[in-house]
Simulated assay, not measured.
Amino acid sequence: MKRFALIGAAGYIAPRHMRAIKDTGNELVSAYDINDSVGVIDSLSPQSEFFTEFERFYDHAWQLKRDPANALQYVSVCSPNYLHASHISAGLRLGCDVICEKPLVPTVSILENLALVERETGARVYNILQLRHHQAILSLKEKVAREARQQKYDVELTYITSRGKWYMESWKGDPRKSFGVATNIGVHFYDMLHFIFGNLQRNVVHFTSEYKAAGYLEYEKARVRWFLSIDANDLPDVVKGKKPTYRSITVDGEEMEFSEGFTDLHTISYQEILAGRGYGLEDARHCVETVEVIRSSVISAARDDESHPFLNTLSR
């Protein structure tokens, strides 16, 4: 049984980490969040200590470190995006391996700094890249690897996840803290595309705003038109008023079944990490580079063969 701490216990994604810790037979020893709305702990790890000040949380972890029988082995990070690097470094310096939500960090330079802290401490950082464990993604990756073809796959990625007015009032609506829509809701899709289709060769942004972004990515084996949005007005008529989320990936015009299979991906990620097969800093480098370029790119006019269909009809 491994002993875990969790940073960001009141966040949306934290219960999936708590569940993964429990379902892999491990123990959540302590948790921290500035928000005390963490009643979910009662149903998963009621014995866990809880702190609303980081200093007290860190001091408690440091005291545990003095006794090898009680020391923490892992720190899970679910805090706001802009705090990931600081919280990862803190966990490493406690002598713990760290499991961090996406996006790991916003820039390659910060990633390389974490690599330095890894070397200083001897501990490891693991990123939750859960789509790499989705069966539909694994099946497509195997298909692409089997097929010997000169022509690149034609891929269309559309992800619309409606968010209410609260979103822009929260840290997620502040690009200094979330790093914008493409990074916050898109980074794991960019990782997935790299995982399946190889290295990125071209990265063009056609549109970006507080609520949505669109562009074109060309990989070794695929040409990808992508569209991401948190605006319910962008939902297709077939789901508008019925579902708040629309997720579609087509490969050469064929829809990939991608609606199910998400529930247990965090638990699978934890199982792989605990078995020594987790995804580390270098695995995350490619998607970190991708979103860094997207955030800094000058908007380009979209060529017809590179333009996502939603680009001409979106609510701006």
Rank of each mutant, 00 (worst) to 15 (best):
202 R>P: 01
207 F>A: 02
126 Y>C: 11
160 I>Q: 07
231 D>T: 07
235 L>C: 07
251 V>P: 07
190 Y>N: 01
223 R>Y: 03
151 Q>E: 14
197 F>A: 05
244 P>H: 10
188 H>A: 00
247 R>A: 12
234 D>G: 04
155 V>E: 09
132 R>H: 13
124 R>L: 11
157 L>H: 02
135 Q>L: 11
160 I>M: 07
129 L>S: 02
180 G>L: 04
140 L>A: 06
172 K>G: 01
176 R>Q: 11
230 I>T: 14
222 A>C: 08
190 Y>C: 00
239 V>R: 09
169 E>M: 12
178 S>K: 03
189 F>V: 00
246 Y>E: 02
202 R>A: 12
135 Q>K: 12
135 Q>H: 13
125 V>M: 03
126 Y>S: 10
241 G>L: 08
170 S>W: 00
255 E>F: 11
247 R>V: 10
206 H>F: 05
217 L>I: 09
168 M>K: 06
156 E>W: 00
186 G>N: 01
121 T>G: 09
129 L>D: 06
239 V>Y: 03
216 Y>E: 09
204 V>I: 15
143 K>E: 14
180 G>S: 05
219 Y>M: 15
243 K>F: 14
212 K>S: 15
170 S>M: 06
126 Y>W: 13
159 Y>L: 09
227 F>K: 04
235 L>W: 08
212 K>I: 04
259 S>G: 15
190 Y>S: 04
118 E>Y: 07
168 M>Q: 12
200 L>R: 11
228 L>H: 10
141 K>M: 05
254 E>T: 12
201 Q>A: 07
260 E>A: 15
228 L>A: 09
156 E>Q: 15
180 G>E: 00
259 S>M: 14
221 K>T: 06
164 G>L: 02
118 E>V: 07
200 L>S: 04
132 R>D: 04
205 V>E: 06
184 N>C: 03
151 Q>G: 03
253 G>T: 09
157 L>T: 03
207 F>H: 12
156 E>T: 12
135 Q>D: 13
143 K>A: 13
148 A>T: 12
251 V>I: 15
195 F>R: 01
238 V>Q: 13
254 E>K: 15
232 A>I: 08
222 A>Y: 05
142 E>G: 05
166 W>F: 08
248 S>L: 14
189 F>P: 01
216 Y>C: 01
215 G>A: 07
